[in-house]
Amino acid sequence: MKINASVSIERWPVAGAFIISRGAKTHVDVVQCELTDGHFTGRAEATPIYYEGESAEKCAEQILQFVAEHPDLDRAIVLQNKPRGAARNALDCALWDLECRKTDKPLWQLAGLPEPAPLTTAFTISLGEPAIMEAEARKAAAKGHGLLKLKLSGQDDHARVAAVHRGAPAARLIVDANESWNDLDIAAEAARLAQYAVELIEQPVSAGRDHLLSGVRSPVPLCADESCHTSADVERIAPFYDAVNIKLDKAGGLTEAMAIAHAAQAADLKIMVGCMLSTSLGIKPAYALAQLAQWVDLDGPLLLARDRPDGFQFDSGIISPAG
């Protein structure tokens, strides 16, 4: 059956500023994709991966062009003919949503995932001076967030983590090095952070330089993010990491994200499910996949100044569907 597409680009303001080692963001542009067969409509949202050269305009154009070239669209066609990235994520997830509406079945059931239950999600503390991060951690803890994710830069990281621990001494911590530890003694750095309840270190080295982790005995599990985009990457990175962070925009949709999760499980890697800055529409399929994860980082909507009216509920660090 012929599929028609419509896309729109939406700009959502960030609450304050979202700061990582690559820079600060005060807003995020997302692409909303709707696919219809004339009777039912599936809807999805994707966030362009700016550090890979994507933009909302490019993604919107790619979606419309792809649907025009493949009128008998289905997920297999998308997976086989569209490179990974935000445009494919929007197409894949909109097709999943379309199938949900056509069959009147929930996503988890169609995808063969566990029935969703509320989950603890990390809350991100942006990169900043230690005193600022300490204050932000104290505010987050006061709101009930028991799992915090810190953005680091490779400089003064110990001071930043110590400050956050002072601000939220009972919180569990994840740190995201954002590829900044290439020139550091990673095992020693991890040992310094272990005393502060850090339980996961994301992407300590640059993607493509994972060999720097060979032989490293870290007291804290190491998690691949930028080093793992698709299921084909899992075998390559498995010798160097203990876990993998799966993001739907990075993988190019729920279909490939599930393949990564199954490959990770087969390789005895733990799973983290994360997200880009996005509204609740963007993390809806990721929430279904996150039922398989040991760590969940789906705070994208919480970092915005506002969310969609039918968005997820966030209560004391717990994410659950609205209603």
Rank of each mutant, 00 (worst) to 15 (best):
H229Q: 14
D249A: 15
S206F: 00
L269E: 09
Q265W: 00
T230C: 13
I237R: 12
G208R: 11
A191I: 00
V198R: 03
A259T: 03
A238D: 02
S227D: 07
E256F: 03
E202M: 08
A191Y: 00
R236S: 12
S214L: 12
A267N: 10
L213C: 12
E189M: 14
S218F: 02
I246Y: 06
G252C: 08
A266C: 03
D225W: 10
V205I: 07
A259K: 14
I201Y: 02
L222I: 13
G274E: 07
P239L: 05
Y241A: 06
A238M: 04
M276Y: 08
I237S: 11
A243M: 15
D242S: 14
D210C: 01
R236F: 06
E256Y: 03
K270S: 15
I201S: 05
F240R: 09
S231P: 00
S214R: 14
V216N: 10
V234H: 07
E256W: 03
K270P: 00
V220P: 01
E226I: 06
R217G: 00
A259M: 10
V244W: 01
D210I: 00
A194L: 04
L277N: 03
E226V: 05
P221Q: 06
L222Q: 07
Q195M: 01
Q203K: 06
P221A: 10
V244M: 04
A207F: 01
A197L: 10
E202H: 09
S278D: 13
L213T: 12
S231C: 08
H262S: 13
D242N: 15
P221E: 03
